[in-house]
Amino acid sequence: MHNPHPGLPELEYVKPASLEEASAFLVAHKGEARPFLGGTDTFVRMRDGFWKEKYLVDIKGLDGTNVITFDPAKGLTIGSAIPMNKVSAHPDVKKNYSLLAAACDTVASYQLRNRATIVGNICNASPAGDTIGACMAYGGVLTVFGAGGVRQEPLATFFKGPGKNALQTGDIVTAITFPIPPKPHSGRYMKLGRNKMSDLSIVGVTVLAYKDAAAKSGYTFKVVLASVAPVPFMAEAAQQILAEEPVTEESIGKAAEAAMQAVKPIDDVRSSARYRSYMVRNLTRQALSEVWQQVKS
């Protein structure tokens, strides 16, 4: 029986002055404290009684979390506290990382995206995270401030299971960084929900493609699948088909079939596993066809 609190349970709000202080607090109150950004998942889980931490540590505004910068030589850095609407409206993001902007705009509602953050979306490690595919396809790397200093966590190895990630107690993600993407490239995020917009994804297919002389086919396609496995993942077999075989309607269909074979969806209240499997195939095929039309011309 799902019977959440009418409001938030009793909690203490902690606003540290520095990353060091925040990290130290989290370590000192291990199991009792949790960092939060927009709170859009945190508050819901606390009302549900699913998370029971006593302290919520607000890391918005700490060093580096509140800036978004683009360097034409190095790439894009998005502070962890930057809400999704700021990301998708940022001219450098729109120009150079349009797939990320598009993925942001599929999350929930406009007003929720004024609080929800990309880093929060990643740290929740939801199998359904809408922005994770774009972040993986663009080669995102997290900057983590932890007890042992600052380190980099590539997304490729960050997710450990539904709701589980590579962070340790006291770790605070301050930003996500992306290298300069291939120019030109074409990306597409196909999200299928029960409603046309605003739902969680039943299936999320992210595709990014660009010309690549190193690939036998002359193109590299990246395919990231969400909501169809414990964590979002790169569909490598599909990618390989399109790297090695000439890109045609047939090989795209073959890659889509390979994506379908690679997933391990579950039956849940949102969808059956069977429907998810077919949707992976159909949406991957659609997304690949669309980006192929753009990238080949």
Binding site: G7, G39, V44
Partner: peptide, 24 residues
């Protein structure tokens, strides 16, 4: 709904709309 889903509590916070049930 107290869960950021229905929008009935939407207010402008620093010029941008938010679900006020989702802000401390």
């Amino acid at each position: 709904c107290a869960a950021g889903e229905c929008g009935a509590c939407t207010v402008m916070l620093n010029g941008e709309p938010v679900n006020s049930c989702m802000v401390l």
